[in-house]
Amino acid sequence: MYYGVKSSCCGPGESLAWRQARDQETTHPVPVDVFENKEGEYVIRASLPGFRREDVQVEFEDGVLTIAATRHEDRAEGAAPTTRYYLQERAQGRFERRIQFEKASGEAIRAELKDGVLTVTLARLKEAQPRSITIE
């Protein structure tokens, strides 16, 4: 996380090399919002700026939602690998996030990527209604 502008603005330094090395090895987390919509479904919103549909994978298995993505926009734009960075705060490489749901069903899962925001909708598992038994 580089908040300082001046310190990292003046050409590639040690911190940048370190950052790039770390980017290659690390899986970056994806910030998410999870809420319930009016229909009672779970809605997961993940910030994935710069990702295209083909870069993003969404899986739901055993109650765990996995969002995985790889960013390589610089390569896609045909920029030389020796591009000089004055400031590099945006992480590159692999991003992943797992979220566990206790009461979600993957049957009607929907996912949409728009303006760099991934929206996944999961239905809630219907809870078994308590059944009253008449004693005869």
Partner: peptide, 14 residues
């Protein structure tokens, strides 16, 4: 760690 900070920027030379 999921926070990229307040408006993450890259500044590069093209």
């Amino acid at each position: 760690a999921a926070d990229e900070g307040n408006l993450a920027l890259d500044v590069s030379e093209g």
